[in-house]
Design a protein around this nucleic acid. Structure first.
Lengths: 248, 248
DNA sequence: TGACGGTCAGAGGTCTGACCACTGACATCA
DNA sequence: TGATGTCAGTGGTCAGACCTCTGACCGTCA
């Protein structure tokens, strides 16, 4: 005789609390900037110990969802920084080979720019043009340029109307930030990048998806090439060889 | 007379602990897969309470750096979790629409299977064949089949020799697990999936990258179609209408 | 000999209740 | 009116207790 039992799912209190908070945030019951109930109150109304509540809050704090101010209270973050913040902390353990990251970017961004052409509205394309202008006026400060540069790429991903691809792009951007900065500091690189952006923009505006993808790939291959040059020119500035294997 | 004082920076114990762990990780003193000291020991050697250690561990767990197994211990994550956890935590606040996840999968897996053909060794292809056999022998239990199914897709991603793409695939797999299970439970779906796998395998073995990509896309479009049917047959089993817009 | 179940140590999970440190607001006083 | 003191509320930290889960060891019994 074969008895069939249902698996009993056990979750930790911390998980449950995070899930409940998440729902309240999603439903709009808690809005960005709002103050959450004090830990003690939260614990009591959930019928759990304060320690459990604190672990959940701590986790969400480091995810960038909550902001904890000692003596004041716990607040829901203003939305925008949720992804990047979390990533900054975790990317300390750099692990992906830079060339693989770039290759992945080629695949993702080849797709986003293609979809962007197919799916975007004229207003979207106007915005993209404005963002291009913005990069063109930020040619003095590398960091600012890189920021504007990312806004341009991000806007394209948004125009693809696929939030997953957008998220992937943001993630990779964080992981390649350092290298991007190194590349852009090379003389002539800002102008170079701007040229590529202009070509991409042109293809998007004229709704030529294939050509847009083509220019995007050229752009990323160019970056790939520069990074390769950088890597070769300073063969190893990594110290630990044990960790070398899983450095990005 | 103007006295100038240095600002006293106060950090929380949790921050300090995270910082110390981070240094040990970066220096290679703790390697991926390693077991950390028990919470109690860690607490004692840091001269802090166990609660503080737990908060630090919990934070790093949700950052994807540590893996906590109840009754066993705390471990430093293996390489590949970072992106997955990134997605999971952003998924906490904003669920990705299922159709966008599938679309992303088409883009990623179209690339991995192509690269797999180009880059894989004969041994890799043998292994893939074995994994196909494994799926073919697990047709009775849906959960097991799904697991074997994933191993097949994962192996392809590994053969592409791009850890970033592999990681993204894993992330998406976790986010679509539920829907995959629903699809595979439909009658005839296991056989259907096996057919597609066989075709993909065939193209890989004969080193036809374009055809392999083609079959992979057909496979995923098929899944897309099934999910669409599912979604339409139960239009709204979500409760909150405020959140409706963001639910996948 | 090998499968099964009992036992136990060690690990994480949870709870309690206490006290400290910081913040903001209100009351007080010169 | 402005500086100062006070205090309640909130997060930060602690010690110690007990629970549950995991893995390993070991004896029983077919």
């Amino acid at each position: 005789m074969v008895l069939s039992f249902k698996r009993i799912e056990r979750s930790t209190i911390t998980e449950d609390i995070i899930e409940q908070l998440r729902e309240k945030i999603l439903s709009g019951e808690i809005k960005p900037g709002d103050k959450l109930p004090p830990e003690r109150v939260l614990a009591e109304s959930l019928s759990v110990a304060r320690t459990s509540v604190r672990e959940a809050i701590r986790a969400m704090q480091y995810m960038g969802i909550l902001e904890v101010r000692c003596g004041e209270g716990t607040f829901l973050s203003e939305n925008t920084r949720i992804l990047t913040d979390h990533f900054k902390s975790s990317h300390l353990l750099k692990r992906f080979p830079i060339m693989e990251l770039i290759e992945a970017r080629k695949i993702i961004e080849g797709a986003t720019v293609y979809l962007a052409v197919v799916r975007s509205s004229p207003e979207d394309r106007d915005t993209l043009q404005e963002l291009y202008q913005l990069t063109a006026t930020n040619t003095d400060d590398e960091e600012k340029f890189l920021q504007a540069d990312f806004e341009f790429h991000k806007k394209i991903a948004e125009m693809s109307q696929n939030s997953v691809l957008l998220e992937m792009l943001s993630a990779m951007r964080e992981l390649t930030l350092e290298e991007n900065l190194d590349v852009i500091k090379k003389p002539g690189q800002i102008k170079n990048a701007l040229d590529f952006h202009r070509k991409i923009l042109g293809s998007v505006l004229s709704c030529d998806a294939d050509k847009a993808r083509e220019h995007m790939l050229r752009h990323l291959e160019d970056i790939e090439q520069r990074i390769l040059e950088l890597v070769e020119s300073r063969p190893s500035d990594e110290e630990s060889d044990a960790a070398g294997e899983w450095q990005r």
